[in-house]
Structure formats: C-alpha cells, structure tokens
Design a binder for these strands. Structure first.
Length: 684
RNA sequence: GGCGGGAUAGCUCAGGUGGUUAGAGCGUCGGAUUCAUAACCCGAAGGUCCCGAGUUCAACUCUCGGUCCCGCUACCA
C-alpha cells in the first residue's frame, strides 16, 4: 500500500446501446465514485476514468433496426449516459468514448505493437456469411432449428428451449437474424491472443500474489485458470469498429472486447493531454508506483483479470491492476434486470420521478449493494431506507441540532464551556469513526462504511436525547451552548463523513453550516465550526417518500411486466388436423358453480361443486393462482367436459375438466356462456 | 456434467484458527420523551446459523454427500 504514489480508478465502460440503470450504478459507478471521492478528500493523487463503449455487433444491429447509423446510435446513448452520470454526481475526471480519435489511435497502436512483437497467432476458419447483408454473422445472429429438441427458434450459441449450447454449424436450416436469408459458409482469417501462453504467470500473479481479491473474483479466476485458457480471437469481420492496422484486412475490425479496455488508457491520455498539470498519461499506466483499480460487474471478471492483463503484459510496458473489486448483480423486485425486457429502473427516468433525490438512490444502492452476492432492489425497501434512515436518523439529527441553535442562539455557533465526562466520551466515540471508516473504505467495504457514517448521526441523536438541551435551556444557557456546540461539530463531521456517499446532501449541509473548507483529515475534530460564526439557512436535508410515490413505481413495473408478456406472446402452432367426428366425442356442457374452495395443501387446485342439471358433480381444476378468491366464482356458469373418466386428485374424485383460456401471461380465465343457459346443456 | 460464489432473525446483510447467552440495521411490540419531518432515545420479543452424515470432549464454523439460487464452462445423447 505504501509503495503507491497515485491511484488510477476505472469503472467498466457502459455499452452505448441503451441508457444506464440502477444495476450499473449499484454494481460499478457508485462504489467507484465513493472510492474516488474518498481518496480525493484525503488529498491523494487520483484519477477516475470512465467512458462509453461504442463498438460491437449489437450497436450495428440496433442501427439497422432503427434505420439509422451506428454512429448516430452511439452519439445518442453516449450523451444520455454521460448526462445521467453527471446528474448522479459520478465524479469522473474524464468521461470519453471509444469512437474518439484518441482511442482509435491508441487501440490501433496497441494492436500493432502486439502484432509486430508476434504476440498473436493467425487462424483461418469457416464462418457463416450473410450474402444479402454482406457480412459475417456472430453466433447469436444466426437462428435455426435446434438439432436436439427441434425448436425452430434456436440461436447460434444456444437453444433457449432445451438449454443446450450450440455452435452455429449444428443448426438445421440456419437463417440470418439480420436479413432472414440463408447464410453461406465462407473462409475468414482472424488474429488470436494465445492466452494459454500467459497461463503460468497469470496463475502466479492472481492465485499467489492476490489472495486478497474478493472471493467471487478470486474464485472465478481460479475456475478459469483451472479449466485451461485458450487462444481468444481479437478481430472480427464487421464494418463498425477500429480497422485492423495491418495491410490487406479490409472489412476487419478489432474485437470490441479487445478495444474496450484500451479505452481506459485512451481516456486517460485524452485527459492528461488536455490538462498537463495532471502529468503524462504514461505515468498513470506505466509507472509501477501507480495503483490501478478496476471497478466492474461480475460479468466482466474474466476480461479484467485475465484477458486485459494478458494484453498489457504482452505489450510489455504497462503495469497490472492491483485490485478488481467486482460486485455481483442487483435484481429488481425479485427479477433479473433486463434491458431488452425493459425490466429496470433507468437513471434518466428516476430523476424525472424523483427530482433532486440522487443521494437517496445512491444511499439505497450502497446500503444494499451486491458486494458478496446478488441482491434485490425493491421500492418498498427504497422508501423504508429513505424514511427511517436518511430522514429519521440523519436528516432529523441535523434538523433538531440546527433548530435548537436557531431557537436559543439565533443561528450563531455558541461557545464551548466546560466538558462533562459524557461530552468527552461522545467526542471520543465519533473520533473513532474515522479509523473505522478508513479501514472499511480501504477494503472496498462500502456498504459497511456507509453504515458507519450513519452511526455518527446515531451518536448525535443519542447525545441530544441524553443531554436534553431544551430542558437545560430553562436554567443554564452556558451549558446549553456547550451541548449545542458539540451538536454542531457532530453535524460538521457528518458533512465530511458522508461526502463520498451522499455528495449532494453534504454540499447542502455544508451550506447550512457555512462550512467552506473541509478535508477527510478534519474528520473527528470538533473545532470545524468557529464560535460566533453565523449558520446558513436551515432546511430539511431529506424529505419523506410517500406510499403513493413508490406505489406508482411498482405499478410502472407491473405494466412493464404485462407488456412484456403480451409482447412475447405468439399463438402456438395449429395442431394436426382433426375431424368433426373427433370433436363430437367430447361432451362439453354448461354448469353453475355451487361451491368453490381451495383444496388444502395444494397451490393450484380449486374444488368446484357444480350444478350440472344432472344431480351435480365435483371437479378439480388447477387454476387457483388465477383466482385467489374462489368463493367469488359461486353462481357463475362454466363449461366442462362431462365424459372424462373420474380421476382421483388429492383423494378427491374429479369428474371432468373445467375449460379455461390460458392468457399470454399464463393466467387462467374461465370460459363461460355470455348469457345464462340451462344447466346441463351441450356446447358444440 | 465440471467449476466458482451464495444459503444465518419477518426483511437486507455481518460473522467466526471449532469452545460459555450467534450479531447489526430496518420492521414488530413495550417504555420514556417532546428540540425534531409521530421523528429521536431506552428496552424486549424473534434464529434446529439450508438438509443429512462424519471427524471431535465440543460444529453454525472443519470433511463428505444432498437440495435450492446466481454465474462461468463442457459434453454425452
């Protein structure tokens, strides 16, 4: 730790084909930002690098679909993403993009160096080519019939129906997902980074020298290394990306995974070139007194811990990352966040619904960060954390301290008189918070660190409750002043402790306290506010969030879910031909529901007692989840098949089958005549 | 199928070279209080630490087997 003179922090480059959502924020940008702010506040030399990842096939597909160009797509999303980050206070020193000139040059040169050094191997293989769209097809853009389950819509890499992973060559009747035409096989040459040659030192470097990496990261790397590394293609046949900087490679670009991490370097260069006082970019990447930390999500572990380091090592002049704190995934209301299914809370939309509440989201995402395992974000939890922690603990403490000073001292910092033992104990306690916080932040334990900061506010609340300034004020204004003086110093400490986590609220609090300069090292001191100083205007630090606000968000998500289910609905294929004679064998009748109850110890079964006009019968039907209040079905007419043999289910004879439509969302809807008819009549 | 991560209070999560009463925050309940956004403060209830077997004087912690969730990866047919 001591050998480093500066820290370079990178955060995964978001892919510019959609906006960023809370999963990105929780997994990567908030923790990276907390860390960057913390180090800056400590006065350390630090750069925080970000940028958009703008190459790759999905962007070209999106462009085609929207009838526009890849450049237009990335321009749009780069702007949107950049703005979201700014609004959330993600304090990048630079946020650039991989379509920049600097990056194209940097990535080209990088490739060229490796090429000239003979670090690649060349291989020719046959791949599917779409003659109509004039391009080679990535595995997932080829569809066809699965050779195992004969699902017609299997992808070139996997059949989603039977779960088998496939190669495009196995598909029966392959079709291009781009043009719909039948692809042909064509020879193509590509360059590969022989990761297998790097295995030995990677093994040593990670498994022996970096045992301190998070268990999920270390374990994942070990898993890869133990499986054995294979050469990995670093070029692609595509017209969108960085052209290979070698002759006779028309139509070939760097594989997006090769160029993207180099973006960290390019963006650093762009920043340093424009701001010479920051030093040369090489200092930040090639000097071994620089500490590099990559913040990423778990899907990126292998690239940042194995592929990118291998690239850097192959190049030869770069330092390797010191740590790669990777988070797990954040789920949303119990379901996996998904861009394509629109199952997400988008940052740009959040700020429309909750203007000015950036810190609330930052707080909740940190409090519930998926540091060791996947976590779930729910709006209910969001509301509770806001109301019972930010408002009730932190905001409330600030408010009561300031209101008391306003009330008894006209908003002027009162003098400190003699300290009681209790005062001293309190001051010592919050002095310890600094050490605690540092230890946690240094080890990337942001969730615990934030909890520790909140603890300071708890100490403040307890101090006020125990000292009861409002009672003392009736008899002893000197003592009251001392109490409130301490209260204010705690408030000033809170502004510092929370700065990395809640920058907007800290700024607001500092202005209320008229606290201009501050640094991390001031934390734990109790002379941050000068006696006689005038406080600023007092306002609430946080507001409550009402039930209706979060309910609206839940409804929004439910609507999304509904839309998704209906969108993906396709009527099933028509069954094999049948005849009227076959249909005639089915005796379908109408009956009225006399009783309907849930069968005990089952999830799905409802027991119907029907008046079928023929003495009545009992039928069980597995539709309970669609009808949570079965008693409401009493009196309604339903259709049923009357001539099935009785079948015992859960010890009850079920005499037939009740007919339901199965809706696109899987819900059952009972089929009923649209006018009351006589019980027992036939349907036909 | 293999590998990695996870499974601990109603919820979200900590934890331990194995050793007397297993922790925090929120929620719930009770008390106290009124400076404060019915907030704060004090206290209590609440857990076969996923299941089974083994090692041990002693396992929530170690070993083996199993189940479930997440991820990576392979392949038989």
């Amino acid at each position: 730790m001591t050998k480093f003179k500066r820290t370079l922090i990178t955060s995964a480059l978001p892919y510019a084909n959609g906006p960023v959502h809370i999963g990105h924020l929780a997994g990567v940008y908030v923790p990276a930002d907390i860390y960057a702010r913390y180090l800056r506040l400590k006065g350390e030399d630090v750069l925080f690098i970000g940028g958009s990842d703008e190459h790759g096939v999905p962007i070209t597909i999106r462009a085609k679909k929207e009838g526009t160009t890849p450049q237009a797509v990335v321009d749009y999303y780069h702007k949107l993403i950049k703005k979201s980050f700014e609004e959330f206070g993600i304090s990048f020193d630079v946020y650039s993009r991989t379509s920049s000139k600097t990056h194209h040059d940097m990535a080209s040169n990088f490739f060229k160096t490796l090429y000239d050094k003979g670090e690649f191997i060349e291989q020719t293989s046959e791949q599917y080519y779409d003659e109509e769209a004039c391009q080679f097809l990535a595995d997932r853009y080829i569809t066809g019939e699965c050779p195992h389950c004969h699902n017609e819509n299997a992808y070139g890499d996997q059949c989603e129906k039977c779960g088998t992973s496939l190669s495009p060559m196995e598909l029966i009747n392959p079709k291009s997902a781009i043009s719909g035409s039948k692809p042909v096989l064509r020879e193509t040459k590509h360059w590969y980074l022989p990761l297998d040659k790097h295995e030995a030192w990677l093994r040593q470097w990670i498994l022996e020298e970096h045992k301190e990496w998070r268990p999920n990261v270390y374990g994942q790397c070990k898993s890869w290394l133990d499986l054995g590394l294979l050469p990995r293609a670093v070029s692609r046949d595509l017209d969108w990306g960085i052209p290979l900087p070698i002759p006779n490679t028309e139509g070939k670009v760097l594989y997006v995974w090769f160029d993207a991490p180099i973006g960290y370097i390019s963006n650093t260069k762009e920043l340093c070139d424009a701001n010479p006082e920051l030093g040369k970019w090489e200092t930040w990447w090639k000097d071994d007194s620089t500490r590099i930390v990559h913040f990423i999500g778990k899907d990126n572990i292998v690239f940042h811990c194995i592929v990118f380091p291998a690239m850097l090592k192959a190049e030869g002049s770069f330092v390797l990352p010191d740590n790669v704190p990777s988070n797990e995934f954040l789920n949303l209301e119990g379901d996996k966040i998904s861009t394509s299914r629109n199952w997400a809370v988008w940052l740009n939309e959040y700020l429309v619904d909750f203007p000015g509440k950036q810190d609330v989201l930052r707080y909740v995402l940190t409090a519930n960060a998926p540091e060791t395992k996947d976590n779930d974000f729910t709006w209910k939890d969001f509301q509770m954390r806001n109301n019972s922690e930010l408002v009730a603990i932190y905001g409330n403490f600030i408010n009561r301290a300031l209101v008391l000073v306003q009330k008894y001292f006209d908003g002027i910092v009162p003098a400190l008189d003699e300290l009681t033992d209790y005062d001293r104990a309190t001051l010592k306690e919050f002095g310890d918070v600094k050490t605690q916080l540092e230890q946690l932040l240094d080890n990337f334990k942001f969730r615990d660190a934030q909890k520790e900061a909140m603890n300071l506010a708890r100490i403040g609340n307890k101090y006020l409750a125990d000292t009861e300034a409002w009672k003392v004020a009736k008899t002893d204004m000197v003592r009251t002043g001392t109490i409130l003086h301490i209260g204010l110093q705690i408030a000033a400490n809170l502004a510092i402790a929370f700065e990395p986590f809640l920058p907007f609220s800290s700024a607001k609090l500092r202005s209320m306290l008229n606290l201009e300069t501050f640094s991390w090292n001031d934390l734990g001191r109790f002379d941050l506010l000068k006696v006689g100083a005038k406080l600023g205007k007092v306002e609430l630090l946080f507001e409550k969030i009402e039930d209706a606000d979060v309910e609206a968000q839940r409804q929004k998500l439910l609507a999304t879910k509904k839309t998704n289910e209906l969108d993906v609905f396709k009527p099933t294929a028509i069954k094999a031909a049948t005849t009227i004679e076959d249909f005639d064998k089915m005796d379908i009748r109408v009956a009225t529901v006399l009783e309907c109850t849930k069968v005990p110890k089952t999830d799905k079964l409802l027991q119907f007692k029907l008046d079928d006009g023929m003495g009545g019968r009992t039928i069980l039907s597995g539709i309970a989840q669609s009808y949570p209040e079965p008693e409401k079905l009493v009196g309604m007419q339903v259709c049923f098949i009357a001539n099935f043999p009785a079948r015992k289910l859960k010890g009850i004879d079920s005499e037939g089958m009740i007919l339901s439509a199965v809706d696109a969302d899987g819900n059952f809807v009972l089929v009923s005549p649209n006018k009351t008819v006589k019980n027992g009549v036939s349907v036909g």
